[in-house]
């Protein structure tokens, strides 16, 4: 199975280890992974700021890099959601449509397409799960506390396959961390307060790591944790699923 890997821009630049873990994990599970070299950004930073009119270049570049693959996988629910909702090609709508249908967030790809039921991974630490909103509410990766529907979680399902891991949730299981793209600077005070509150609830569970499916949430939480000198570290779910302690 050939999988095209989409590594969002800020992961490419700031968290290459997340990209590496994703690639290694997919290869371990038998995928042929291809990384199209001309890829940049999904366009979300502009679109969420109201400038969707400025995303044509991103759309064009994404389509040029990712057309023709059966599967495209990215370790980010947020970027995947953006593309699924907004990727477009006015001249060639079929191409954008085909990409949207081939595109998967990493954990849903593992549970729904590869149907992983065991993992050769060990991570003997106490880990708090952060539900990233766009993956959870946008891509339906986990049931939501607001809704009266059966309970499930694709990320948790995978994490439970990891040896030695101890999982916990914060008291408010799926409250937003406050990153929110450019919200994190334009609404700095609320953004940081939301992050601090998530961290306080995770601290109550006496954990070693906070994990999530989106490095953007984790970057924000990491910034706050490091400022307060907390021993808690952040780690992308791909790194845990790919770990071997």
């Amino acid at each position: 199975m050939t999988v095209a890997l989409f590594i969002p821009c800020y992961i490419d630049q700031l968290y290459p280890k997340v990209g590496i873990a994703t690639l290694e994990l997919l290869e371990k599970l038998g995928c042929d992974v291809v990384f199209p070299l001309g890829q940049t950004c999904c366009g979300q930073p502009m679109a969420n700021s109201g400038f969707s009119g400025l995303t044509n270049g991103c759309n064009k570049n994404f389509i040029a890099n990712f057309s023709g693959f059966d599967y495209i996988v990215a370790p980010s629910g947020s970027c995947v959601l953006h593309l699924k909702e907004h990727l477009q090609d006015d001249k060639n709508p079929e191409k954008a449509h085909q990409i949207k249908n081939s595109l998967f967030e990493l954990t849903e790809f593992l549970t729904d397409i590869i149907k992983v039921d065991t993992l050769d991974a060990r991570f003997p630490f106490k880990v708090g799960i952060h539900n990233s909103c766009h993956g959870q509410r946008g891509l339906n990766l986990a049931s939501m506390t607001e809704k009266n529907t059966p309970s499930f979680s694709k990320p948790e399902q995978l994490l439970k396959m990891v040896g030695g891991i101890e999982l916990s949730y914060p008291k408010r299981k799926d409250e937003c961390c406050g990153f929110g793209g450019t919200f994190c600077v334009f609404e700095e005070a609320v953004s940081v307060k939301m992050g601090k509150d998530r961290i306080t609830e995770h601290e109550a569970n006496d954990i070693d790591y906070i994990t999530a499916g989106d490095s953007s949430c984790l970057m924000h939480l990491e910034g706050i944790l490091n400022r307060k000198g907390s021993p808690i570290k952040t780690i992308h779910i791909a790194e845990i699923l790919n770990s071997s302690f």
């Binding site: 590594i7 992961i11 490419d12 630049q13 700031l14 968290y15 290459p16 280890k17 997340v18 990209g19 590496i20 690639l23 990384f35 070299l37 994190c184 600077v185 334009f186 700095e188 940081v192 992050g195 970057m219 924000h220 990491e222 910034g223 706050i224 490091n226 400022r227």
Partner: peptide, 20 residues
């Protein structure tokens, strides 16, 4: 405004693409 109450992420030498 990021730095007001948050540390900056550490910048790696190589991007993922470089590593790849």
């Amino acid at each position: 405004l990021w730095f007001k109450q948050r540390e900056m992420p550490e910048a790696p030498k190589k991007s993922f693409r470089d590593w790849y």
